[in-house]
């Protein structure tokens, strides 16, 4: 009775993440968005070498329309090459987007994991703190931080990260509350797995799918946030970013609308691509949608 019927062959050892990747590839919009995103990243990393025009240099008369005088995207109000500015701006925008998202994931996952794992007063205290940050007006608070501590890239990154971690904390806590009651966590405890490993080695990997999706979307919103701050002038004046291009050209929106719409388009395409990828990840990682 104790013999199992031998199978014809052992199936391949497919990890759940690999399976999710296969699922992701079936979502055409998400794959297209991923390709766009890779191209944007490629531009951000290699662009300044492939198109080595200094974005701060006055190369021509102001307001040369796109396509004229050998400038594909024209020049801005100081006669700077807009294409060079957008290529260089991609670096700052993506860098701040990624770094700010990492900061908020780090804070959010730590807070959410501790609250969801230990419950009790730890949870009470951490969730009250989370709620405090949730009700702060985010743009105002980050403007205060940047205005007080100076508009350097690390400070801007930190300011964006520190106002946007609450969603991650709540998602992480909710997942921890669900997963900590599952039997395999109980089994790991019976196996004597210490608390830190239980939290980050056993529960966290199983809580990752919604956190990954949220993080992807957060990169997009951090880019928007940075654009908002630099539009208001709260940015490092030594680097170009998309929001800053829009902000500095905003007076000329009627005379030379392309100086505002082109960097706007760059933001739009990037954030849209990130959202679509995030959406694709959501479908691929959510086991309930897999059955459809």
């Amino acid at each position: 009775m104790t013999d199992i019927t031998p199978d014809k062959q052992t199936p391949r050892a497919e990890s759940p993440l690999r399976e999710a990747w296969g699922m992701f590839l079936r979502n055409h919009a998400a794959v297209a968005a991923l390709v766009v995103l890779v191209l944007i990243c490629f531009t951000a990393v290699l662009g300044p070498w492939l198109y080595p025009t200094d974005p701060f240099e006055m190369v021509w008369a102001p307001f040369s329309p796109p396509g004229d005088n050998g400038f594909l995207l024209g020049t801005d109000y100081l006669g700077r090459d807009l294409l060079a500015m957008i290529i260089n701006g991609a670096r700052v925008s993506l860098l701040i987007g990624l770094a700010a998202a990492l900061v908020s994931i780090f804070i959010g996952v730590t807070v959410g994991a501790l609250a969801g794992f230990y419950r009790g007063w730890v949870e009470e205290v951490l969730m009250r703190i989370t709620e405090f940050f949730q009700v702060l007006p985010t743009l105002l608070f980050s403007m205060v931080l940047v205005a007080l501590f100076g508009a350097s890239l690390p400070m801007i990154t930190f300011a964006i990260g520190v106002v946007s971690w609450t969603a991650v904390a709540r998602i992480t806590r909710a997942e921890f509350l669900r997963i900590r009651e599952l039997e395999f966590v109980m089994a790991s405890r019976a196996s004597g797995v210490p608390n830190a490993k239980l939290m980050f080695g056993v529960i966290l990997p199983n809580a990752l799918p919604p956190i990954i999706v949220q993080s992807a979307l957060m990169v997009g919103s951090a880019i928007l946030f940075e654009a908002g701050l630099s539009f208001l002038g709260l940015t490092d004046p030594n680097v170009v970013s998309w929001g800053q291009i829009i902000g500095s050209n905003r007076q000329y929106i009627l005379d030379a609308s392309y100086t505002v719409t082109l960097p706007g388009l760059a933001i739009f395409i990037t954030v849209l691509a990130i959202s679509l990828v995030g959406d694709g990840l959501n479908d691929a990682l959510n086991p309930k949608l897999r059955q459809r």
Binding site: P16, L182, F184, M186, A187, A190, V202, P205
Partner: peptide, 18 residues
């Protein structure tokens, strides 16, 4: 814990899927 071990009810949730 080495001397006392546990077999759980639900074989679908008692093994870490990852």
């Amino acid at each position: 814990r080495r001397r006392v071990q546990f077999i759980f009810q639900d074989p679908y949730s008692s093994l870490n899927p990852r």
